[in-house]
Computed example of a mutant assay.
Amino acid sequence: MVEDARFEDADDRPLRLRAESAEDMPVIAALVQDAILTMADMAWQPRRHRLAFLVNRFRWEDREAAERAGRPYERVRALLVIDGVLRVASTGIDRSDKDAVLSILDIAWHPAEDGAGRVEITLAGDGAIAATVECLDVTLQDVTRPYAAPSGKAPAHPD
């Protein structure tokens, strides 16, 4: 008898995921929820049509295993890259304050009829970043080894 694969059986390699369809975006959104970064960790490269973020991502995929083992929760540095970007807009953030700490609440895809659309990143404190794109092309890639979350706690969202 063949058993179904379980999430817990996955190996502990760094994540490297790509979203190219609307169905892919909820996975990326779940994994970057509560990621933190500073304004200095954000780069808009208009000639390359790329918007990139170096984030400290909470390892949601490891939360239950950490609790079972009684070990600290973990974070990892990861690159969140949006390609095919035509224009970037933001609201509720001071782009000149490079030390400002931002926290990602959600990332969502809003398609247009022609295949183009908008990738919108919702930030804590009513901030948002919107990237108008030619098509959906978002990559999330861990770039360091996991480290103990400095707070020692999992992010919480009160009702």
Results as ranks from 00 to 15, higher is better:
residue 1 M to E: 12
residue 2 V to E: 00
residue 3 E to D: 12
residue 4 D to F: 10
residue 5 A to Q: 09
residue 5 A to E: 10
residue 7 F to I: 02
residue 9 D to R: 01
residue 9 D to W: 15
residue 12 D to T: 03
residue 13 R to E: 15
residue 13 R to Y: 08
residue 13 R to H: 12
residue 14 P to M: 06
residue 14 P to F: 09
residue 14 P to H: 08
residue 16 R to C: 09
residue 16 R to A: 13
residue 16 R to N: 14
residue 17 L to D: 12
residue 17 L to W: 12
residue 19 A to N: 04
residue 22 A to F: 07
residue 25 M to W: 10
residue 25 M to N: 06
residue 26 P to S: 08
residue 28 I to L: 08
residue 30 A to R: 10
residue 34 D to T: 13
residue 35 A to C: 15
residue 36 I to K: 10
residue 36 I to M: 04
residue 37 L to V: 05
residue 37 L to I: 05
residue 38 T to L: 13
residue 38 T to V: 06
residue 40 A to W: 04
residue 41 D to A: 03
residue 41 D to K: 13
residue 43 A to E: 05
residue 44 W to Y: 12
residue 46 P to Y: 08
residue 46 P to S: 08
residue 48 R to S: 13
residue 49 H to R: 10
residue 49 H to Q: 07
residue 49 H to K: 09
residue 50 R to H: 02
residue 52 A to G: 06
residue 53 F to E: 04
residue 55 V to H: 00
residue 56 N to F: 08
residue 57 R to Y: 09
residue 57 R to F: 01
residue 58 F to I: 07
residue 58 F to Y: 14
residue 60 W to A: 11
residue 64 E to W: 06
residue 65 A to K: 14
residue 65 A to D: 14
residue 66 A to P: 04
residue 66 A to G: 02
residue 66 A to M: 13
residue 67 E to T: 10
residue 70 G to C: 05
residue 70 G to T: 13
residue 72 P to A: 11
residue 73 Y to M: 11
residue 74 E to C: 11
residue 77 R to E: 06
residue 79 L to Y: 07
residue 79 L to C: 03
residue 80 L to C: 01
residue 82 I to L: 08
residue 82 I to Q: 01
residue 85 V to D: 00
residue 85 V to A: 05
residue 86 L to M: 11
residue 88 V to E: 09
residue 88 V to F: 04
residue 89 A to D: 10
residue 90 S to P: 01
residue 91 T to E: 03
residue 91 T to M: 05
residue 91 T to R: 10
residue 91 T to V: 04
residue 92 G to E: 15
residue 92 G to F: 04
residue 92 G to D: 12
residue 93 I to Y: 03
residue 94 D to W: 10
residue 95 R to W: 05
residue 96 S to I: 12
residue 98 K to E: 12
residue 98 K to D: 12
residue 98 K to F: 02
residue 102 L to E: 08
residue 103 S to I: 07
residue 103 S to C: 08
residue 105 L to D: 11
residue 105 L to Q: 09
residue 107 I to Y: 01
residue 108 A to G: 11
residue 108 A to T: 08
residue 113 E to C: 02
residue 113 E to R: 11
residue 114 D to W: 08
residue 115 G to T: 10
residue 116 A to S: 15
residue 119 V to C: 02
residue 120 E to T: 11
residue 121 I to T: 15
residue 122 T to P: 00
residue 125 G to V: 12
residue 125 G to S: 13
residue 125 G to R: 13
residue 126 D to Y: 11
residue 127 G to V: 06
residue 127 G to D: 08
residue 128 A to Y: 00
residue 128 A to P: 02
residue 128 A to D: 08
residue 129 I to K: 07
residue 129 I to R: 00
residue 131 A to M: 06
residue 131 A to G: 02
residue 133 V to F: 03
residue 134 E to C: 07
residue 136 L to Y: 04
residue 137 D to Q: 09
residue 137 D to S: 11
residue 137 D to I: 00
residue 138 V to P: 02
residue 139 T to Q: 15
residue 141 Q to H: 05
residue 141 Q to F: 06
residue 142 D to V: 14
residue 143 V to E: 03
residue 143 V to Y: 04
residue 143 V to N: 02
residue 143 V to W: 03
residue 144 T to M: 02
residue 145 R to E: 09
residue 145 R to H: 06
residue 148 A to R: 14
residue 149 A to S: 04
residue 149 A to C: 10
residue 149 A to L: 00
residue 152 G to Q: 14
residue 153 K to E: 15
residue 154 A to N: 04
residue 154 A to R: 03
residue 155 P to Q: 05
residue 155 P to H: 08
residue 157 H to R: 14
residue 157 H to A: 13
